[in-house]
């Protein structure tokens, strides 16, 4: 276990994806108190940020919590530090997926018909998740 997030790819990518800096969090745990789905989580939301602060990549990659998060944004609405934890969760999910899945498909894999029919939002979301 390292106790520093320096040079952590997960943290850097999560930061870039979400635009949020875990260092801004002072661990008041308001997010965990506000979250409606903590019952199903193995890590509480504030612990996810703490793990990010400590650079615990491995543990985070194996946690269920980012996948339980329903992006209801209650944490973001209540956070006294103005952090958007829902975005950070999405950043963690994207980073973990990309690492795990690699380049699954890109625009070249799709036929012009598919490109025409598929909703653009789904395409962008798919590329973000499954494209390095």
């Amino acid at each position: 276990m390292t106790a520093s997030n320096e040079g952590s790819r997960l943290i850097d990518e999560m930061k870039a994806q979400s635009g949020q800096d875990p260092a801004d969090c002072y661990q008041c745990a308001k997010c965990s108190a506000a979250c409606p789905v903590t019952a199903a989580m193995d890590l509480l939301p504030h612990q996810v940020i703490r793990y990010l602060q400590m650079g615990l990549e491995e543990e985070l990659s194996n946690s269920k919590t980012p996948w339980i998060c329903a992006s209801c944004f209650t944490c973001a609405a209540r956070c006294p530090r103005d952090l958007d934890l829902a975005r950070m969760m999405e950043g963690v999910r994207l980073t973990v997926l990309r690492k795990r899945e690699g380049n699954k498909f890109g625009p070249a894999d799709l036929t012009p018909e598919q490109l025409e029919k598929l909703p653009q939002q789904a395409l962008v979301s798919g590329f973000r998740k499954y494209n390095k």
């Binding site: 745990a29 965990s32 108190a33 903590t38 509480l44 504030h46 612990q47």
Partner: peptide, 11 residues
Amino acid sequence: VHGVDSLSGKV
């Protein structure tokens, strides 16, 4: 009162 004790990680 629904809160969290962050030290034990319990709701």
